[in-house]
Amino acid sequence: MAESLFYLLIFPGITFQLVCGWFFEWFDRKLQARFQRRVGPRWFQPLADLLKLFSKEDLLPSGANEFAAAALPLISLGAVLTAGVYVPIAGFSPASFEGDLIVIIFLLSVPTLAYYLAGIISAGIYSVLGGGRSLLQFFSYEVPLLIALSGPAVMAGTWSIREISSIQAEMGPFVLFQPIGFILAVVGLIGKLKRSPLDIPKAKSEVVAGSLTEFGGVKLAIWNTVMNIQAVVGIFLLVNLYSSWSGIVAPVLAVPVFFLESVLMIFVLSAASAVFARLRIDQLAGLGWKVLVPLALLQLLVVILMGV
């Protein structure tokens, strides 16, 4: 009992996820600043921003559904935190079971749907536009992402992340066999996290802040936390699926290598958001269905043929 509570509340549960989320936000902002030749924020800035948002007045326009606006961020937070518990950290996974990869993928989709609903219920024009865009974007990136993520599962012959991660000790990191699948997964992750260049649903110069335009105070703080934890879970998931070294290197090195890879992933995400311009929604749909899906299918075919 005490053990499960520790897993849920401390590691790899809420506390660990929150700390990783703050670190992710700080490191991303610091990198962005350095790309732009700025000094960048100090290490406690994400925490300070969160406290500032908590102390702010919480307002919604008249006509907005108050209950839904309060419930949606909490539901999303629950979903991403639950997903976080199932992702192995350097081979350590207390709650693993067969098929948890599928559960995580669906739990990570909950914030996107909540984001869409938040746009619809918050009674603002920009929110409605942002919500519609988020759903359009969801249909563009989710299919290639799903096909790409099924690549490692098919290769390992199991849908348990821990199994996939540990089988790479024998077969070698999957990123070597599925480079295209890895790139597609990164693109899908960027789309899932609504990060630049795929920040179409919350493009500032077009729809102000998208679905979250009318949100403020505690609710916005929870939304921001959801986005951060979603990013952390997504990065850990990709590291586990594509480049797990926990069985290959010495056990002492497994943890540093895991976190180093995660930091490298943040670097890749930051660099992508600095180098590419934001796409238009029709360009993203074209890219998703005409380029990414065929490539993902091709990768899957190669994986299946390799298995045979």
Partner: peptide
């Protein structure tokens, strides 16, 4: 070019000062 500029900025000094 943008990727090069990114690397260049990362290796160089920050141009802003903490005022």
């Amino acid at each position: 070019r943008l990727l090069l500029a990114l690397v260049e900025a990362l290796t160089g000094e920050a141009e802003t000062v903490s005022y």
